[in-house]
Structure formats: structure tokens, C-alpha cells
């Protein structure tokens, strides 16, 4: 049961990261089309806004995956100094992380609701109702909060979280 949940969560983090990566490719495509539109004189209204939405989506959907891969950085001097009591330092860090990311997630969802309530519309040429591009942002923020909570629970249960860092030398040939 526990391992099924583990596999499902990891799959969700990775799937979100794949979507984020896809957004980077789409940013590239939008910018190329934006240039092409200028060279050819065929208008592409709202291109800058679309690139911006993709940017936000790419960032937020990758937050959780980046956490588990150790990409988000922290000052670990104090943790190292704790030595055998490092567990308590990790616990504190993950507890604060869960609270902060939970706060972020709560208000990210709320901001989508407010955008719908106020009928907030992009001020650019795209005129997109702003809640649409904000949904993936909120989803990413919620996923980050889930991922922090997941790590916190895993740490308490197994005394080891799911964060596995890789540094530059691992990727070198």
C-alpha cells in the first residue's frame, strides 16, 4: 500500500516535470514564431503574454521534481554541524518548508478564485481570462506543498527523506 502511494506520487512529480519541460520547448516555439511573424508581417498577437504564461507554468510544475532532485538550494552548514542529530535539523527544515509551501499553495489557489470572481482579463493583445494560465501555477504550488509534506512524513517514518541531489560531476563523462 505504502509503496503504491510512493510510486504514484513519484509518477505525478515526474509527469509534472515532463509537462514543465514541454513548456520550455513551447516557449522556444512561441519566440521563434514571434520572430517569424515580424519577418513575414503575419501578426501573432499576444505572443509575449503566451511566452510569459508558459514561463510561469514551466517554473511551478517543476518545483516538486526539482525539490526531490535536490535542485532547490539551501545553506547546509548548520545541518552538517549537527552531526548525528542532523535528523532534527532536517525535520525543522521540512516543517518550515511544508508550512511555507502550504501557505503559497493556499493563496495560489485563492488567487485563481479571485481572478474568476473579478473576471480579470490579460491586459495584452491576447485578452486571456487570467485564471486560465494561473491554474497550472496553482497546481504546481499545490504539488510543491504535497511534495514537502510527503518528504516530512517520509522523514518521520523512515528517518530519511526522498531528496537525492546530483552535482555537476555526476553528469560529466
Amino acid at each position: 500500500m505504502a509503496s503504491a502511494i510512493r510510486r504514484a506520487l513519484d509518477a505525478v512529480y515526474d509527469l509534472a516535470a515532463m509537462l514543465a519541460a514541454l513548456c520550455l520547448v513551447l516557449i522556444l516555439a512561441v519566440i521563434v514564431l514571434q520572430m517569424a511573424s515580424r519577418w513575414t508581417g503575419i501578426p501573432f498577437p499576444g505572443s509575449s503574454e503566451y511566452a510569459g504564461y508558459l514561463m510561469a507554468t514551466a517554473s511551478f510544475l517543476a518545483f516538486a521534481h526539482a525539490l526531490n532532485r535536490g535542485a532547490h538550494i539551501r545553506v547546509s552548514l548548520f545541518l552538517t554541524a549537527l552531526g548525528p542529530r542532523r535528523f532534527w535539523g532536517e525535520l525543522w527544515g521540512l516543517a518550515i518548508g511544508t508550512a511555507a509551501s502550504g501557505y503559497l499553495a493556499w493563496y495560489a489557489v485563492r488567487t485563481v478564485q479571485l481572478s474568476i470572481k473579478f473576471n480579470d482579463v490579460s491586459q495584452g493583445q491576447d485578452a486571456t481570462p487570467i485564471w486560465i494560465p494561473q491554474v497550472p501555477m496553482a497546481a504546481g504550488a499545490v504539488l510543491l506543498a504535497v511534495c514537502f509534506a510527503d518528504n516530512l512524513i517520509t522523514l518521520i517514518a523512515t528517518r530519511r527523506d526522498n531528496i537525492r541531489a546530483s552535482a555537476i560531476e555526476d553528469a560529466a563523462e
Binding site: 516557449i27 503574454e49 510569459g52 504564461y53 514561463m55 503559497l104
Partner: peptide, 19 residues
């Protein structure tokens, strides 16, 4: 605080110059 936080975070995260 929370609403104001999201206003500036959304602006910075969806910034086109950031791409």
C-alpha cells in the same frame, strides 16, 4: 499578505523578459 504575495509572484513568474 497572502493576496499581495500572489500578485507580485504571478507578475514575476509570468514575466516575458524572464523567458
Amino acid at each position: 499578505a497572502g493576496d499581495a504575495m500572489m500578485t507580485v509572484i504571478w507578475r514575476s513568474a509570468s514575466s516575458w523578459t524572464l523567458t
